[in-house]
Computed example of a mutant assay.
Amino acid sequence: MNRLAYHLLDVFAEQPFAGNPLAVVSEADGLKPERMQAIAREFNLSETAFVLASRDPVHTAALRIFTPTMELPFAGHPTLGAACLIAALRAPDMIGRQPLQIVLEEQAGAVVCEVSRFKGVLRGSFAPPRPPALDGLLSDRAEIAAALGLGASEIGFDNHEPAIASAGLPFAFVPVNGLSALNRIAPNFSRFPAAFRLERPAVFVYARETADPAHHVQARVFIPALGVREDPATGSAASAFAAVAVHFEQPDDGEHEIVIEQGFAIGRPSHIGLTLRVADGALVETRVGGACVKIGEGVLTI
């Protein structure tokens, strides 16, 4: 019988029972993928991460990420949570003095993370494994509205239109005209494939209106094809949103900070920090960050 240590964290939150819950199996070498999938199904969280020895000795660790139904090549909150946990376990004294760089080998590529501790709170950030890119616009507002249980007139605000973007995982991005529409979404998942033109539809619906006026957008994310009806905080979607923001907002050259609220509609308030650097009108650098809190640990006996 094997004994495997695991840790439970809430990611993109500064306090327990907010953000996106995550299970991390910290020494998963020797586990076969089918056993990892079974463990992820047992935890039944949006994702479970498995830390393994890196193939390249200059990297910190390898990371495999599973939803309850499948493996993902990259995902944001498991990346951030695993990086924060590894830093806390391997170098607890150092992260209070200076930021630590953690490089995780994921199927989508090597992901460079940075972890620090400020006033007792772990914070991390990462650069997505692929540059965020806008892959096209979605024109059928009536079909999109029907898939979300909204009226067609509620889709879009200012010059924002529904679009597809990706930073490793493709998402449909749907702007709606306020928190009233965002909170009234009643998704009809059977209509998602036709509405969003994705094989495994993942949908990020956002409004400019926010709970905190200092923040920039509030979002809800639905990923039914991955066994996640609604996700409390989605770092991979936030990464891709950088391309959406630059396309529609056309910010000046320089560095820009965006705070995304997510999970408010399901009682898991999350705050995702998105840093953009624009040069000559183009997005040249993206980082996603937030806080992480460990809430428990245990041992699997399998």
Rank of each mutant, 00 (worst) to 15 (best):
S166A: 05
E257R: 13
R41Q: 14
F157N: 02
K119L: 08
L169G: 01
R229F: 15
P187A: 07
T69K: 12
H160G: 00
P269L: 02
A237P: 06
T210Y: 07
R184T: 07
A186T: 13
R141M: 03
I144G: 05
L4M: 06
A194Y: 04
F192T: 06
A13C: 10
E285N: 13
R55V: 05
P68D: 03
V217H: 14
A172N: 10
R220K: 13
D56R: 14
I95H: 01
Q107N: 07
V115I: 15
V121L: 09
V121P: 10
P128H: 13
G168N: 08
Q101I: 07
R3N: 11
M1D: 07
P33S: 12
C84V: 03
S270N: 05
E261D: 06
A91C: 13
S54A: 15
S125M: 09
L122A: 08
Q250M: 13
R191K: 14
A186Q: 14
F171D: 00
E261F: 13
L80T: 01
A61G: 10
T301P: 04
D252R: 15
P269I: 03
A238L: 10
L89K: 09
T69L: 15
L89H: 12
V103F: 02
D93R: 14
L4D: 00
F171M: 00
A88D: 10
A142K: 10
V246T: 15
H215P: 06
F173R: 00
D140R: 12
E285F: 11
D140M: 04
A91V: 04
A82C: 13
D56I: 11
A146D: 12
I302G: 11
A245W: 15
L148P: 00
A40Y: 11
P187W: 03
I185L: 11
R123I: 02
V217W: 12
K294D: 00
G290C: 04
L72W: 04
A75V: 07
F66A: 00
K294A: 10
A28F: 04
V176M: 12
A49D: 00
V11Q: 07
H256M: 11
A28T: 11
G156V: 06
L22G: 02
G109P: 01
F192Q: 08
